[in-house]
Design a protein around this nucleic acid. Structure first.
Length: 103
DNA sequence: GTCGTGACATGCG
DNA sequence: ACGCATGCCACGA
């Protein structure tokens, strides 16, 4: 089944994201070889184990915002980590023009 | 086996 | 800038 393989692709892409940078779901999907299937990326992250060690917090939507519900632990965790890595999060928004990782 | 939902993206009004 | 509608695919009820 290719599902497992595409998950692997996604994990690998996440690992390539440098600290202090962020990427959109579409970007990850494209790098993973799944153009247009950004939903799969998001679904994968949701299924991600807690001790996966993958920098899922560097993945945001095309609007430069975090897709998680505001007030949830994941959201808070993501924002905190991003800010620690030097990413400015203003009003829950990130400047993609500055922090977007481009390979 | 069908239906609805989801950590999305893009286009329109 | 914002909300609504459509497309894409996998998964659970």
């Amino acid at each position: 089944m290719a599902v497992n393989e595409m998950h692997q692709r996604v994990w690998q892409v996440l690992g390539q994201i440098p600290a202090g940078k962020v990427v959109t779901y579409g970007q990850v999907a494209e790098l993973a070889g799944l153009p247009g299937q950004s939903r799969m990326v998001g679904r994968c992250l949701g299924k991600l184990p807690e001790g996966s060690q993958l920098p899922w917090h560097r993945v945001i939507n095309s609007q430069g915002k975090i897709s998680l519900p505001v007030g949830s632990e994941s959201y808070d965790c993501q924002v905190g980590r991003l800010q620690e890595e030097g990413v400015a999060v203003i009003n829950g928004r990130i400047k993609l023009s500055v922090y977007r990782w481009q390979p």
